[in-house]
């Protein structure tokens, strides 16, 4: 970026306010680009100087919390860590599809993810109460690292927004849900068996609904190995189904 003549950016934002019955429509905002400008900075500048009513969600502004998923030039991504310099002078922003719309760029990912957690029971199922005074049970270091690899999902919903199946089948668990099953399946502290997991995802709303088009894998901001995990889970679940 040349430093003497900053670019003039146009942010074309899909605005709406369902509460007031205001239907989606595009609105352009103009901001001057600054060095290191992210969409977090640009959107706040718009709200501070041009339109105080603009709705969007940021929390950590550091790519960690998963709040700011939106369609950036049509592609799901985290707005806070998207640098404007990586885009053209016209950037379109729209709310993530699939999730309930709150207004403008803000959607309700929270209820969706809570629903997923309840449905897939994304917690350790263990009959034994841990003795907190005793030395903890050991775990192989490699295994702990492998679990963390899958635990890194930030529930941003980008994979959900990028998924073809979810547009047609609203009860599909999505890559985020399948990844969670893969995570707990890998964790020996969770006593559930493959049969138990089959109950949760052994149908068309689960792993068999996935068309493997990998819209999810390419957009996951945490680079989770969704492709291999989904393929692996499918094989395991097929095995259970054949039993």
């Amino acid at each position: 970026m040349s430093t003497d003549t900053p670019r003039q950016l146009t942010l074309r934002i899909l605005r709406s306010s369902p509460g007031e019955g205001i239907a989606p429509h595009w609105q352009d905002f103009h901001v001057e680009e600054a060095e290191g400008m992210t969409l977090f900075i640009a959107l706040n500048e718009i709200r501070d100087t041009l339109d105080p009513s603009l709705q969007f969600d940021f929390v950590c502004r550091a790519g960690i919390c998963g709040s700011c998923g939106m369609l950036i030039d049509g592609r799901p991504g985290l707005a806070c860590r998207s640098l404007t310099r990586d885009f053209g002078p016209l950037i379109t922003l729209a709310p993530l599809p699939v999730f309930a719309l709150i207004g403008d760029l803000s959607v309700d990912t929270g209820s969706w993810m809570r629903g997923t957690a309840e449905r897939l029971e994304t917690w350790i199922h263990s009959r034994a109460e841990a003795d907190l005074m005793a030395v903890e049970a050991p775990m192989a270091p490699e295994l702990a690292e492998a679990i963390y690899e899958l635990d890194r999902c930030i529930e941003c919903g980008c994979c959900v927004a990028g998924c073809g199946t979810l547009r047609m089948r609203e009860d599909f668990v999505g890559a985020v849900g399948l990844n969670k099953i893969a995570r707990f399946r890998l964790d020996p502290r969770d006593e559930r068996s493959d049969e138990d997991y089959y109950e949760l995802i052994g149908d068309d709303n689960g792993v068999f609904g996935c068309m493997s088009l990998l819209g999810c894998h390419d957009v996951c901001p945490k680079g989770l190995p969704l492709q291999t995990q989904i393929a692996f889970l499918r094989r395991r679940m097929v095995a259970v189904g054949l039993k």
């Binding site: 917690w123 350790i124 263990s126 841990a130 907190l132 005793a134 903890e136 049970a137 050991p138 775990m139 192989a140 270091p141 702990a144 690292e145 679990i147 963390y148 635990d151 707990f184 964790d187 502290r189 969770d190």
Partner: peptide, 13 residues
């Protein structure tokens, strides 16, 4: 820490 380990936190080992 031990409670969190039982609840699934993948502490480095």
């Amino acid at each position: 820490v031990r409670e969190l380990a039982a609840w699934g936190v993948p502490w480095n080992r």
